[in-house]
């Protein structure tokens, strides 16, 4: 009897996954292969034209989303790694305070944070207005409604998800291993390159996944901070779903995005040598 206990205990989680992940995905897959409209009904035609039409129509936004997500992820990595490193190795007993500060913005809702960015970066707002007043910036300079604002917003909103896993990985690096490297004639740079960086790769891997995927799919930053040519694929899904009630197209785009992201992750994992990465992470 008792040997079944773990299975029983795992059952709720499995059911949860089955009901809230597998069933909706299956339903969405099915919907993506229907044709029709809400009024006349959708019929299961198994036609893949939804996919080809959606890709043809929205390839610009899809590619743009991947580029924005990718660029934002790279920036987050470049900005986030030193922060994670600093907290892990230099913050001393104030570590938990800095981690708390890092998470502090998350006590405010995502949308509100993004909107407050819009406020901060207004053309004649506190930041730009002041700089323009000093003559540092030309009068017609603006940040909002540009690609820079959208990517900046993505970076701002997802940065902690890059920092935290890298921090956790760095935190797990045995300081004696770092000393051993110094002891074995490695300079600081070479210790970082040969020892610290490889050992933190599982964290980098997790951080990239946790930021690239949501950043690519995010609709809010483009909507609040973007201009006329910053529409991302998340906005398109939203419009197709809510405004046009074109469920098949919305599902097809969602699946296309999912597929593209999965393929991207797979390639990325292969390039980074996931087996080692995941093994090291599991250690």
């Amino acid at each position: 009897m008792r040997r079944w206990t773990p299975y029983w205990l795992a059952l709720p989680a499995w059911l949860w996954l089955a009901i809230f992940l597998v069933v909706p995905i299956a339903a969405m897959a099915s919907v993506s292969l229907t044709t029709g409209n809400l009024i006349d009904g959708f019929t299961q035609t198994f036609s893949v034209s939804n996919y080809s039409d959606a890709i043809a129509k929205y390839s610009t936004q899809l590619v743009r989303s991947l580029v924005y997500g990718g660029v934002a992820t790279v920036i987050m990595l470049v900005l986030g790694y030193p922060v994670a490193y600093w907290i892990a190795f230099k913050a001393g007993h104030r570590k938990s305070m800095f981690l708390f500060l890092l998470l502090l913005p998350f006590f405010v809702s995502f949308v509100l944070r993004t909107i407050s960015w819009g406020f901060l970066l207004a053309d004649d707002g506190i930041l730009l207005g002041t700089l323009k007043g000093w003559g540092v910036l030309p009068q017609d300079f603006h940040v909002l409604a540009t690609t820079v604002a959208v990517i900046g917003g993505l970076v701002y909103n997802f940065l902690p998800f890059m920092i935290l896993p890298i921090y956790v990985a760095l935190e797990r690096v045995d300081p004696r291993v770092i000393e051993a490297s110094y002891d074995l004639y490695a300079s600081r740079l070479s210790t970082f390159r040969r020892v610290v960086l490889p050992l933190s790769l599982p964290g980098v891997f997790a951080g990239v996944l946790m930021t690239f995927v949501p950043a690519t799919a995010d609709p809010i930053n483009a909507q609040v901070l973007g201009g006329t040519s910053n529409t991302m694929i998340g906005n398109i899904v939203q419009t197709e779903y809510l405004v046009n009630n074109d469920y098949p197209t919305a599902s097809a785009i969602s699946f296309t995005l999912m597929a593209v992201l999965l393929i991207g992750i797979f390639i990325y994992a292969r390039a980074l040598g996931t087996e080692n990465v995941l093994e090291a992470a599991a250690r």
């Binding site: 045995d174 000393e179 051993a180 110094y182 004639y185 300079s187 090291a280 250690r283």
Partner: peptide
């Protein structure tokens, strides 16, 4: 002189081998 410039090596408690 920093450790990487000293012609001395160390065997650490619990070895501190490079796990990767």
């Amino acid at each position: 002189v920093p450790p990487n410039k000293r012609d001395i090596n160390m065997v650490f408690q619990s070895y501190a081998l490079f796990p990767h």
